[in-house]
Design a binder for these strands. Structure first.
Lengths: 189, 189, 189, 189
DNA sequence: AGCTAAGCGAGACGGTACGTCCAGTCTTTCG
DNA sequence: CGAAAGACTGGACGTACCGTCTCGCTTAGCT
């Protein structure tokens, strides 16, 4: 009965917001600017997303990538390989500076707002699930200790990577992924 | 030669800022209000910290406190205990929600501004150094593998904790610290 | 096409500013206070006048009001009367101390900023034009010398008044206006 | 017994203040800056002049120039010549833009503070006295009308010049001085 | 075909904080 | 005591965004 919303605008706004978020971080994303850059009125943005936070949630939700679970076999070496594949993928994806900045912004955004929080959580959950899947296969197949808590091992693996991304700024490459997986599997003792 | 800064003011400002930060979060901390509540001119605040961000970093730096390196002995069990002490301390400090929010803000701030970045880096370095010290003692005393890379193990330990703080939101307590250290030492295999 | 400015606010702001200006002088006029007293956001003031100075110019412009050209006839005496009317009006308007202060501020502001400068120029132009009009009528009607330069005579008349306002601080009243016009017309010789 | 004041500083401060006043106007003169540029502590400035205004007064007082009264004779033409000399001198001195700016600043300063006011008044009084002296000689010698009010004629002459300086921005040169004196003497009628 | 409800652009508005700038005073140490 | 250095109070300025609002125009789709 009424004039329908222009769905194209949605996409353009999201794209512009995504770029701004990547480039200038949460605070650098200015709703007014997004609207102007897309050639849309600020009202049009606010009609779709009642808040800047809501907009950011949408943007982040759109980044959801598909992570497939590597599976080269059930032997101990296969499990190690598969974990290295996952860790290497994380290193590869998270190493570039703009991505690091973004991850930091998202970590901060996660805290600001519950809606945003769960959107961000959903972002990371896939890769986390992949790791857990490999670990459980390893446990089931006997390649890993039966009493292992996959949760904790996942924290070690992913944690080390995110720690370098967010806290130390340390470099991330395949060599690091290999060393990390090796140490996690072998233990320190 | 000139009139010295009133060091008492520093402390009062930091205290007020800390309280505001914990109570109302980053955005809830208003420089003007801090100054007024302490009975100091806003300029006095800005003379010490050029930016609200810098002030917040100082506040958090004050929280970090002194981290002393635990040392209960060189046996394998002692090393494990000492690492658990460190990990437990981190869990204890970083668990409360307002602190998590702050750590996230700081991680983001670290990326935005080099000045701030190094201030934040200094924040974490102490605890990181403590962990490394214990690990090296373990290696030297034969309690840990000779070929171990302390860097990587530190990443695993601290990384897991920060990962829960920033990414998953998982809980952090002594039990977790113990489980984490156990797994790191024993390995997954 | 957009929401129109609330013209009532303009008037209220100008009124409040005028009052403050007269009561407390230029420095006593505080934009923030004006806004609050009118019940308007400070931004609303700054949207209309980019600077406190601009606001003051507007206020004064409003004081200038419409100057109509007196015209009692073409005889020599009529011209003299009309000139006296204009000069008397100027004396009347410019005599009060706060106004003198303002005129001085405006003269200074005129030099500092081109934008402001032309605004101030517009302020004075009306009365200047009125004087010139009467003079030209006098020349055309034969009451004044044919070879007279109206520009110079206007300078003499208005100049004397502003000179007293800005430089000597001399008093300004109807008697002075009459004496001035008489001398200008009769010459010194 | 006590350390004597460094009198050289006085001169340096005044010089710096004068330059700042000329270049950037009253508001552009910043006490802090003056002190720093001279290599003196702000306190040193404030010990000598309790207020920025007082400093400005001193500066202006220092500008006092000597104006001598031209006297080529008592004939009507001589009086005209002498007046033209004075008017031409004023035009010459006041025409340059920085001087115009300064005159405006002084007019404004005059209003701000009584002390400053009288200092500024003293600045102009010499030239004003010179004009009056010539006029009185003219009256006494019969070259000018006996019933002339020298005050008013001075206003006309000086006023026209200052009017162009401060209000219209009109040009000032010898030709203008001649035209002005001619019109003042001959009258408009 | 016309009515009508909603979309839309433009931009005004209230509100809140930020960081900056100066005047004038105060405090310390040195000569 | 004078001077240099610079901290301190106090107050205003102008800026930046957020989220809401008010216009007048445009555009479906129901009557």
């Amino acid at each position: 009965m009424a004039r329908p919303r222009n769905t194209e605008s949605d996409a353009l706004i999201l794209a512009a917001a995504a770029e701004a978020l990547l480039q200038d971080g949460y605070d650098g994303l200015v709703v007014d600017e997004i609207a102007r850059s897309v050639g849309v009125a600020k009202t049009t943005v606010y009609r779709r997303w009642p808040t800047k936070n809501h907009l950011v949630v949408s943007v982040v939700a759109g980044w959801q990538g598909v992570v497939d679970v590597p599976n080269t076999g059930d032997e101990a070496d296969d499990i190690a390989n598969d974990l290295t594949t996952i860790a290497g993928g994380m290193c590869h994806v998270l190493d570039p500076a703009p991505i690091r900045r973004l991850v930091a912004e998202l970590a901060a955004a996660r805290m600001r707002d519950d809606d945003l929080g769960s959107a961000v959580d959903r972002l990371w959950s896939d890769r986390r699930a992949a790791t857990a899947a490999v670990l459980e296969r390893g446990i089931a197949g006997g390649a890993l200790r039966r009493d292992l808590d996959p949760e904790v091992v996942t924290d070690e693996l992913a944690g080390a990577v995110y720690y370098r991304v967010l806290i130390t700024g340390g470099s991330l490459d395949d060599a690091y992924a290999r060393a990390l997986v090796r140490t996690v599997l072998a233990g320190a003792r």
